[in-house]
């Protein structure tokens, strides 16, 4: 074993390590099933915003009852506040999976995450 070890030069170890880093990076970037890459916000059935999930931002969406606030952060999104009576969409919390949807029915606003490998093809109500 030591005989074989002697054949490994310092630079070789670095190349091996770099190769393993490339492997890890490839796994993380190519095999992330269900990670979202964008968010679609609809109001009254119309798309009002289509954003990527790379940077933080807030989107104010007006509806019949008032303003619904959508909050976007890297890799996730949520309905931060909504004028609806039951607050279902707010209590859903952060959406992190592609295909996840939060619907604020009273204010006619919906937030859905898009991605390559969404769990659903479409949702119907």
């Amino acid at each position: 074993m030591a005989q074989w070890r002697a054949l490994l030069l310092p630079g070789d170890m670095m190349v091996v390590a770099a190769g393993l880093v490339v492997c890890a990076y490839a796994v993380l970037s190519l095999w992330r099933g269900g990670a979202p890459d964008g968010a679609v916000v609809r109001a009254g059935g119309r798309v009002v915003a289509e954003v990527d999930l790379n940077r933080e931002r807030r989107i104010d969406v007006p509806g019949p009852l008032g303003v619904t606030v959508i909050e976007i952060q890297p890799g996730r999104a949520r309905v931060a506040s909504d004028p609806g009576p039951r607050q279902y969409c707010v209590r859903q919390g952060w959406l992190t999976q592609a295909g996840a949807v939060a619907i604020c029915a009273p204010n006619e606003v919906s937030l859905s995450l898009t991605g390559r490998a969404a769990d659903y093809d479409s949702l119907n109500y």
């Binding site: 054949l7 030069l9 630079g11 070789d12």
Partner: peptide, 10 residues
């Protein structure tokens, strides 16, 4: 001195 056949190979 630093890089041998192993580096070349990989």
């Amino acid at each position: 001195r630093w890089f041998g056949p192993v580096s070349h190979s990989i």
